[in-house]
Simulated scan of single mutants.
Amino acid sequence: MTTELAKPDPTDAPPPVPQVIRAVPVRHYGRWISAVVVLALVGLLGYAFAQGQVRWGTIPDYFFNDRVLTGVGHTALITVASMALGVTLGVVLAVMRLSKNPVTGSIAWCYIWFFRGTPVYVQLLLWFNLGLIFQYINLGPVYKDEWSDFMTPFLAALLGLGLNEAAYMAEIVRAGLQAVDEGQTEAAHALGMSHARTLRRVVLPQAMRVIVPPTGNEFINMLKTTSLVIAVQYFDLLQAGNEVGSESGATAEMLFLAAAWYLLLTSVLSIGQYYLERYYARGSSRSLPPTPWQRVRTAVFSVGRGRQEARA
């Protein structure tokens, strides 16, 4: 009896050894070209400024001048006051705009239409020059006085900036409220909550995620727009810089100084906006973005660990 040997099955052959793939990174020549072009333009700009007779030493000399600091304080005051008026009135206008009452909705729409359609500079001049039309302000038994005593430069700046900002804030708040799902409102009403309480406890906290970023931008824009209050004779940072510059003969340098103060103030507001956005991002993001201090600490520690590993 003979036995036949099993023939090897060609499918049982060992799989081929995969070859090592050499990954070649894609070379982005456009990035290097654009970087060279940008650096060249920056160099040309620096060269152009170096040709001018700018007395850079006068900027640190007058940076903490008494009048400059007073102007900075007045600018910060009118910015905060105008934004407080704009945000408060903007929330009211947004609720009126979303109301089913046609009267309140129409009034809110007309307000937004007027104040968004006219320049803020014109509104400032209008409030300041109403004394040419009205000699007295008469609110009946509540208040009565001469218009020149009532409409101070601060009040004219506050009304001109705050009422104009309210129109923009109304649209921002309205967009944030409409971004919240209607099911949230229906669920709150099913639990017996009133419309006002639903708006305050359910809708508005969720809408803040949409409202905060553009509101921060409006706050920064308001800080820069305060430079227009010089039209109503309100003493601010720009006017302080102009006065110091005319007395010292360093007019252009004092404008650079004012620009430096504006940059400093807007940087502080930008940091506050970042932390406020991070606060309202809780519950919507799995992990909160790191703070600037956390990023710096991580970068420093990573460099330190890299040096220790290199020595080891």
Rank of each mutant, 00 (worst) to 15 (best):
Phe256Ser: 00
Ala188Phe: 15
Gln239Tyr: 07
Ala312Phe: 00
Ile230Glu: 15
Ala312Leu: 05
Trp113Asp: 11
Gln184Asn: 14
Phe128Asp: 02
Glu165Cys: 11
Asn101Met: 01
Ala50Thr: 09
Gly216Ile: 04
Ala157Glu: 04
Met222Gln: 13
Gln51Glu: 13
Gln239Asp: 14
Leu85Ile: 09
Pro14His: 05
Val203Gln: 05
Val20Arg: 10
Val296Tyr: 07
Leu276Pro: 06
Gly90Cys: 08
Val42Ser: 12
Glu309Gln: 05
Val103Tyr: 12
Glu253Thr: 01
Trp113Ser: 13
Arg197Gln: 10
Ser267Asp: 12
Ile220Leu: 11
Phe114Met: 09
Asp181Trp: 03
Val300Pro: 02
Ala13Phe: 06
Pro290Ile: 15
Lys144Gln: 09
Ile211Val: 15
Asn164Ala: 14
Leu161Gly: 11
Glu277Pro: 09
Ser194Pro: 05
His189Asp: 10
Trp293Met: 07
Met151Ala: 15
Gln123Trp: 07
Gly140Asn: 10
Trp261Val: 02
Leu163Met: 13
Glu4Lys: 12
Val38Arg: 01
Thr3Glu: 10
Val92Ile: 06
Ile107Gln: 04
Leu69Gly: 01
Met254Val: 00
Ser34Asp: 06
Thr118His: 02
Arg174Met: 10
Ile133Leu: 15
Trp113Gly: 04
Ser270Leu: 12
Gln135Thr: 08
Arg55Trp: 11
Ala94Lys: 12
Pro289Ala: 15
Ala250Leu: 03
Leu155Ser: 06
Trp109Pro: 02
Ala108Gly: 03
Ile33Ala: 15
Leu163His: 09
Met222Phe: 07
Pro141Asn: 02
Phe134Thr: 13
Leu191Phe: 11
Gly43Asn: 04
Trp293Pro: 00
Ala196Tyr: 06
Trp293Val: 13
Gln239Glu: 14
Leu158Phe: 14
Leu93Lys: 05
Ala190Met: 15
Gly241Tyr: 00
Ala240Cys: 07
Leu204Glu: 12
Tyr262Ile: 01
